[in-house]
Design a protein around this nucleic acid. Structure first.
Length: 486
DNA sequence: AAAGCACTCAACCGCAATCCC
DNA sequence: GGGGATTGCGGTTGAGTGCTT
């Protein structure tokens, strides 16, 4: 494409008159002659002082245009052509770290320009959206401010490099600095995620050799609770994005060397390429840069918790009767719409999967265990995964725990189908959602505050929390000390 | 074959930061 | 310190191309 769009053709000739045009400066695609002039100038005088190019060489281009042309096309050592898988991986990693800091990312991709990286990223996020991710209502989008707030806070503390202005600030983030791990995600909107180690429970089943790619759902692999009694929460969405039965996908050997299904790269995996024939639909950033749409109608009216209804997911804890909107966390924390919101987000991720392809029964929670051919194990696993009918699975570690003792698994947090939430006709569901939205700041902050404990928290944060005690789970106000850092 | 759409890329714009006088 | 000039950055736009319908 780059070759097709030569300097003398293609490119964006912008409409309208601006100062440059009024000053007799050219706009639009550069010609070879202009390139030659600029090249000669830079060779002779070096970079910088771009406005003098016009004065000294008669090049009818503004300084900005000259600089851009040089930086993006003429400077030496520019690498042209498609990004390599390694570069793709790095971009994903860097974006997870920096957000939309293209220039910063470019410094770590020799020969690549910020513009290239930006275009690359935007194209694929756009593709993600087009793969069926609905646009959220404005009021819900506003809720993302919670994350931005958190991110700003964390930037101040040098905890992350997320861009606080980035539109792509994600509810989910890639955890990149794990050389031998495929990309995983954690609910890292709090920005506290330390990517230097894979979050517990993340990729447990996905990354390691000889483990079932489906074995890790939205789950916690350790049952340690934080100070508020919430189980730590992290997840690999890789389970929930793959529709085919587990047997259809190979195990991942790590490092992106072997991608599941027809994914050919991390990019395709994360950002939306998928093989329609395989009905693989990935989880992607496009799904997370915005919050889920409430406009998307439920696919099914089935209210059976273990069957029927397409695409609905929600968070439940093992042994939890989600239909009653309760949970059994020790401190009695209630959903208050947060889980519904997450549900909706998850549903957004699901996009426009056909409902019948998402039938709960297709992949039962017991499937992984059954595959292992141990009836008792299967039963144990199924107990563990009672509320996980949806592409269902528990982390294999949890399954093992379940086999070994079983008791720990009760804290498992999983994605599960929730017709109770997805069905507006059901008792006050719509109202619940709406209410949940309106009260989401507190709840979301609460959740973000409370998980994942498996991810290292900064010392000052732990210290702060110790002094706040457990009563302050709501950081609704700007004055929240926990959000202000030391 | 034509129209429409999606994709890619280049380039522009506005804004903010930095530099310089 | 103030103000203009310059530079850097991120977001957006639009043309060309190829694919799909």
């Amino acid at each position: 494409m780059a070759m097709m769009m030569s300097a003398s053709g293609g490119g964006g000739q912008r409409k309208g008159n601006n100062a440059a045009v009024q000053q007799g400066l050219r706009k639009g695609p550069w010609t070879a002659a202009e390139d030659a002039i600029l090249l000669e100038y830079v060779t002779k005088h070096g970079e910088g002082n771009w406005n003098s190019v016009q004065k000294n060489c008669g090049l009818l281009r503004c300084g900005k245009s000259c600089r851009l042309r040089w930086a993006n096309h003429l400077r030496p050592n520019l690498k042209k052509g498609a990004f390599t898988p390694e570069e793709e991986r790095l971009i994903i990693q860097l974006h997870a770290q920096y957000g939309n800091k293209w220039a910063r990312m470019a410094t770590q991709l020799p020969g690549r320009t910020d513009n290239e990286i930006k275009n690359y990223w935007n194209t694929r996020t756009k593709r993600r959206h087009r793969s069926g991710v609905p646009v959220y209502p404005t009021e819900f989008q506003d809720k993302t401010a919670v994350f931005h707030h958190k991110q700003r806070h964390n930037e101040q503390n040098n905890l992350t490099h997320h861009n606080n202005n980035s539109k792509s600030s994600s509810l989910f983030s890639v955890c990149p600095k794990v050389p031998d791990y495929a990309p995983c995600f954690s609910l890292a909107a709090d920005g506290l995620t330390d990517f230097s180690t894979p979050p517990a429970g993340c990729l447990k089943g996905y990354c390691s050799n000889n483990t079932n790619i489906y074995s890790s759902a939205f789950s916690s692999s350790n049952t340690q609770k934080n100070s508020n009694g919430l189980a730590p929460l992290s997840f690999s969405p890789l389970v929930s994005i793959f529709d085919p039965p587990p047997s259809a996908l190979p195990p991942v050997t790590g490092g992106g060397e072997s991608m599941p299904g027809n994914f050919t790269s991390f990019t395709s995996l994360i950002m939306g390429d998928y093989d329609a024939d395989q009905q693989l639909e990935p989880f992607g950033f496009g799904a997370v840069s915005e919050l889920p749409s409430l406009q998307t109608p439920p696919r099914s009216a089935s209210s059976n918790a273990t069957g029927g209804g397409g695409g609905g997911v929600c968070l439940v804890a093992e042994g939890l009767d989600n239909a009653n909107s309760n949970n059994n966390y020790g401190d009695g924390v209630n959903n208050s719409g947060l889980l519904d919101a997450l549900l909706m987000e998850s549903r957004t991720i699901c996009g426009k999967r056909k409902a019948d392809e998402m039938e709960i029964g297709v992949i039962s929670s017991a499937a992984p265990a059954e595959e292992e051919g141990n009836g008792d194990d299967a039963a144990a696993a199924q107990r563990t995964c009672t509320a996980v009918p949806f592409w269902g699975a528990c982390d294999d570690e949890q399954q093992q725990a379940s086999r070994d003792g079983g008791g720990e698994a009760r804290d498992t947090l999983v994605f599960a189908h929730s017709s109770a939430v997805m069905e507006p006709a059901k008792e006050g569901t719509a109202a619940v959602i709406a209410e949940g939205m309106s009260s989401m700041d507190d709840d979301l902050l609460s959740l973000l505050t409370n998980f994942p404990s498996s991810i290292p928290l900064p010392e000052w944060y732990r210290h702060q929390r110790q002094h706040e005690g457990n009563n302050d789970r709501s950081y609704g106000g700007e004055a929240s000390p926990a959000l202000q850092g030391p």
